[in-house]
């Protein structure tokens, strides 16, 4: 029991008629992880969570939470879980404090204990000055924070956060992400879904990339990036070369051909005055690229060299952009 994963999903299949929403989906999450489910809209993230929470019936497979089979009537397991749905799920007629108290009361019946938990949750999401506000009076970011507070006030061991930062301002987003890490430090296992790869990279200890109902890759941030050939991405602002022909010996096509001929260069493209060169891991990719530019007399402004992102991982594994 002590060594059981917090979430164990095996061969999960969910169909809607001919549409296969989850296709033999496997998932294992260990205690204490911040696990990221990353995938474009429609990849099956929310369906997977809804099946795990028994909000949706599934066609095939097995789901265990805390080492026990999950079912709609496993109220003992549900008691240990917190849910922050993608849509803000609050009662519009209640105030901030009343909303948190109501959802907390579904888990904690003792009034005195609950009062302390509600206060902690309000403090945690920074809504102290808004406790008497109704949700309609809150900004989008504050509503999202309230949504989170309603899901975590009862201090669950396992928290599902389904795209909690959609349509949130940067300040609220940072606060939410910091809060999630704080929850994790306090002992909660976090399952975090998003299609924002930067967020997942920032907070998740392990990541699964999903596409079309399947897990296409899983591992830590570094492990995932190591799965693809791209080791370095070089971006060079070449200014008027975007216009093309008037730079001697520097037509776009000729330049790209020269770059593609370099060892380690996997792809090269030019768009909107920015030259993009993806390279395999190499010791002097950047100097090689700049040498080609100098040799051809191509003036350039700023030069960036960056490691690959999860989007690159997704691109290489599926052939499409993560944000498509």
């Amino acid at each position: 029991m002590g060594t059981s994963p917090v979430v164990a999903v095996r061969e999960l299949v969910k169909r809607y008629g001919d549409l296969v929403a989850l296709d033999h989906f496997d998932l294992t999450i260990e205690k204490g992880e911040v696990f990221g489910l990353l995938g474009p809209n429609g990849s099956g993230k929310t369906t997977a969570i809804n099946c795990i929470l028994s909000l949706l019936a599934f066609d095939q497979g097995e789901i265990q939470l805390f080492g026990e089979p999950m079912a709609p009537t496993r109220y003992d397991l549900k008691r240990r879980i917190g849910v922050v749905p993608q849509e803000v799920a609050v009662v519009e007629e209640l105030t901030v404090a009343e909303n948190i108290d109501y959802f907390c009361a579904l888990y904690v019946s003792d009034k005195r204990e609950r009062r302390a938990l509600v206060e902690d949750a309000i403090r945690f999401v920074g809504l102290e000055d808004h406790r008497r506000f109704r949700p309609a009076k809150l900004s989008g970011g504050l509503r999202r924070r309230l949504n989170i507070a309603c899901g975590i006030a009862h201090r669950p061991e396992l928290i599902f956060l389904d795209e909690p930062t959609v349509a949130v301002d940067p300040q609220s987003r940072n606060r939410i992400l910091e809060g999630i890490l704080e929850l994790n430090r306090a002992g909660s296992t976090i399952v975090y879904t998003s299609h924002y790869m930067e967020e997942v990279e920032q907070i998740c200890s392990r990541i699964m990339i999903m596409d079309r109902g399947r897990a296409i890759a899983e591992g830590t941030n570094d492990e995932l990036k190591a799965m693809i050939g791209t080791g370095e991405k070089i971006r060079v602002e070449v200014g008027e070369l975007a216009g093309g022909a008037d730079v001697p010996g520097a037509s776009a096509d000729a330049l790209l051909d020269a770059l593609r001929a370099l060892p380690h260069v996997l792809r090269a493209s030019l768009a909107n005055g920015t030259l993009s060169v993806d390279c395999a891991t190499g010791a002097h990719n950047l100097t090689d690229v700049l040498e080609v530019l100098r040799a051809r007399g191509v003036p350039f402004a700023r030069v960036y060299s960056e490691p690959p992102t999860l989007n690159d991982v997704f691109l290489e594994l599926t052939g499409t952009e993560l944000r498509d």
């Binding site: 809804n50 909000l55 109220y75 003992d76 549900k78 008691r79 879980i81 849910v83 579904l106 888990y107």
Partner: peptide, 8 residues
Amino acid sequence: ARTEASPE
């Protein structure tokens, strides 16, 4: 959905 996910 949130109430259905709860132990109520």
